[in-house]
């Protein structure tokens, strides 16, 4: 049974449709990332699952129990969900221990102490139980928030932009820690972000949203390598679009020469658009090359190069191998070649 099942969920806010007949399934111990630009409806979706969103139509089930449906709207405290907020929402009048113990008021004192101590150990904050929120760093506050949510033993963890208030170097370390924590606790999680790097690092699957709909769902690789639209392709990374047309069952003709495919292709006279990621184009210096470099920027392990080739602009990533003597400068003549890969054709 999936942990979360959403069917045909729509939401209106002041006559604007924020969610549009949206379907989603989240399996047990799976971490899914809701990715999209601001205003695409991802936070609304999260709040709908938590029971904090009004004016919904459609069904939501958590662990097979309906929580939203016709005439049904289960109160947030009865849904067994954990919610992690962007601002952590630690209770400022309670210390770390009491924050984590907040939902444990039915247990005996000793049981509470046991549970909180083990959670503190889990998030590596055993020495901080007496501290208050304002005495903790952002990363520590986030870990307390996670421990507090885990104490309630939710069926599903919802995280709303949980890493956006953190410094870059703390962020990715914490992402690894919390991912490991959720996985080891057998938790399923739905996670909202606008940063694809966070999604890559934290989630098993990514659901990319646009205007209240999920436009593509799958692993990070699938979305990056096999996007189903230009929107997805551009959102996931830099893209080059190359006009091609089939010449026979195994090859296309293009500006960058003849491209051969390993598998048989559909013979179609109409021109097609081929997606080329910057690392799928090879670049070599050559005095009689047709390309001319317009920009070079150094990014550590690779160089980002822009080339004008037959009037079109191409983004290229050139890996800096150790001992590689090729130095590119603006104005150099170069030739380009498409590396062999699974072709992705877009409309």
């Amino acid at each position: 049974m999936p942990t979360l099942q959403i069917n045909k969920l729509s939401c209106f806010y002041q006559d604007i449709q924020v969610l549009d007949l949206l379907d989603l399934t989240l399996n047990h111990n799976e971490i899914m990332c809701l990715l999209g630009e601001s205003g695409c409806g991802k936070t609304t979706l999260l709040k709908a699952v938590a029971g904090l969103q009004a004016q919904l139509s459609g069904d939501i089930q958590i662990n097979g129990n309906p929580v939203n449906g016709k005439g049904l709207n289960v109160a947030p405290e009865k849904r067994k969900i954990g919610f992690i907020f962007q601002d952590y929402a630690l209770f400022p009048h309670l210390n770390v221990f009491d924050n984590i113990a907040f939902s444990l008021d039915r247990l005996s004192k000793q049981e509470i102490k046991q549970r909180v101590d083990s959670l503190l150990a889990l998030v590596q904050l055993s020495d901080y139980s007496e501290r208050f929120a304002h005495q903790l760093s952002g990363g520590q506050q986030q870990r307390v928030a996670i421990a507090r949510a885990l104490a309630y033993q939710p069926d599903l963890m919802l995280l709303d932009e949980p890493f956006s208030n953190l410094d870059h170097h703390v962020r990715f370390q914490l992402i690894d820690e919390i991912r490991a924590l959720l996985k080891s606790s057998g938790m399923s999680a739905l996670f909202v972000t606008h940063s694809k790097e966070e999604g890559f690092a934290f989630a098993d699957k990514i659901a990319l949203m646009q205007a209240g709909k999920i436009v593509q769902i799958g692993t990070a690789q699938a979305l990056y390598c096999h996007p189903n639209s230009r929107y997805v392709a551009d959102f996931m990374g830099l893209s080059n679009y190359l006009k091609v047309h089939a010449v026979d069952q195994f090859s296309y003709q293009s500006d960058l020469g003849l491209l051969t495919s390993d598998s048989e292709i559909e013979l179609n006279k109409a021109p097609l658009t081929l997606l080329l990621r910057p690392e799928q184009i090879a670049i070599t210096s050559s005095a009689d090359g047709l390309g001319c470099i317009s920009k070079v920027s150094f990014s550590g392990s690779y160089q980002e190069i822009r080339v004008i080739y037959r009037g079109n602009d191409y983004h290229i990533k050139h890996s800096n191998h150790f001992g590689d003597t090729q130095q590119f400068k603006v104005g150099d003549r170069v030739s380009l070649r498409v590396l062999n890969h699974d072709f992705v054709l877009l409309r």
């Binding site: 969900i81 907020f85 929402a89 104490a151 309630y152």
Partner: peptide
Amino acid sequence: SPSLDLASRSLGQ
């Protein structure tokens, strides 16, 4: 912050 209320509600209160 309203998220404090929501946090409490999501913790079963």
